[in-house]
Write a protein that binds this DNA or RNA. Sequence first.
RNA 1: GGAGAGUUGUCUGAGUGGUCUAUAGAGGCGGUCUUGAAAACCGUUGGGUUAACAGCCCCGGGGGUUCGAAUCCCUCACUCUCCGCCA
Length: 420
Amino acid sequence: MIDPKLIREDMESIRVLLKNRNMEKVVDLDALQKFDEERRDHIAKIDKLRERRNAISKEIGKLKGAGKDDSQLRQEVQGITDEMKELETGVEKLNESFNDMHLSVPNIMDKSVPIGKDEKDNKVIREWGKKPSFSFIPKPHYVIGTELGILDFERGVKLAGARFYVYRGLAAKLERAIISFMLDLHTREHGYTEVFGPFIVNDDSMTGTGQYPKFKDEFYRIERDGLSLIPTAEVTLTNLYRDEILNKEDLPICVTMQSSCFRREAGAAGKDTRGLIRVHQFQKVELVKFVEPESSFDELEKLTANAEAVLQKLNLHYRVVLLCSGDTSASSAKTYDIEVWMPGLDRYMEISSCSNFLDYQARRAKIRYRKAKGEKPALVHTLNGSGLAAGRTLAAIMENYQTSDGNIEIPDVLKEYIRA
RNA sequence: GGAGAGUUGUCUGAGUGGUCUAUAGAGGCGGUCUUGAAAACCGUUGGGUUAACAGCCCCGGGGGUUCGAAUCCCUCACUCUCCGCCA
């Protein structure tokens, strides 16, 4: 959620924002403003009425105690109650309309974000390493994996359906190694604390990070228990401090967690249908930071560098892309995608997405901190990024480390994790 | 899954429908006193809404009864104890 004050005081900048994000049609700003005004007007009236009613009730109590007649006061209070009821039903509807629209207003955007329509307008910020050269035509990971018998898509389908897979032998082992390696790197060298928490969370958590209520179709929900499978450990990690007031001294808080991630991929029919790129269940190491507002853009650079370090140590060529206004997700103020080179697919593939949410998530999830004793709590800034998606990392290693005889070499940094 | 007991402000803990609309103690912060400290004494001590004071809201969440609810009713969640089941 953006600061509701912006809606009242700086409508024009929101109008520009919506235009840049191609979301002009998503939010009706005039209606939003109207709902807000009416709703606040009603609330003020109700408060006045309640003040009067509280006073009368007190009076009645006194009269009763003294054994005196209170019928006149009772009559007056009846009128007040009726009026309040009417206003209250109005406020309920107004609040609902306002909240729905307020939730769909995207986050403000950083000045450094290029204005653009879609991924074509994204800006490549830097590249690292080089595309590897092969003396043969490199195969896509799903061909290598199937031929080696370590990726089994047919049995994945049998067990659960399309977009599921089974790892066998080296693939299973390699992914486990990748995850351990990444967690060790982030905790030993980048200052993150390793966390492990629920993969299944309640609706408050899904709402806190912005998955609900807008994108319900994209996630697996267990109706019977009112719980959902997390699409990313961002949900678990960011909601750790939901409804809490943190100490300034404890910031920044940097946490990392590996989890399975569950996505319905509802709108992805026909896209990336082969291989490990787009699947319903995959593993990922997530990085989340809670920081003071002043430092959040510096922290975004650091977080992105932390994710890049994984690829550097694996010696995988990648580029960092700054997403343009139209391609940045609604809750993010600035996003870098890290795209790894896939020789078999002959294209770059997103393997991490690092975002600064400013106070957008913190406001929803009520994550605050106290700057100094006696001061009112202020919202923290939250950031997150993949560090990295494990299944895609496995795919990238398979394609980049393939040999002419159809095998895969093990990257040096993973060797100590694979003591077969 | 069954039975019972709970959930109150930083903590402990009162409060079973009003007339001081949250006792009291501890802790924290400030002060007096002191060479300094302790003790003692005095004061202060949450979140939200609002331009702001006032007002209004918050006694696990939601709903209800009532002129009036921490207090009564319904419902859900969580915690504890016992039983059952179980990796």
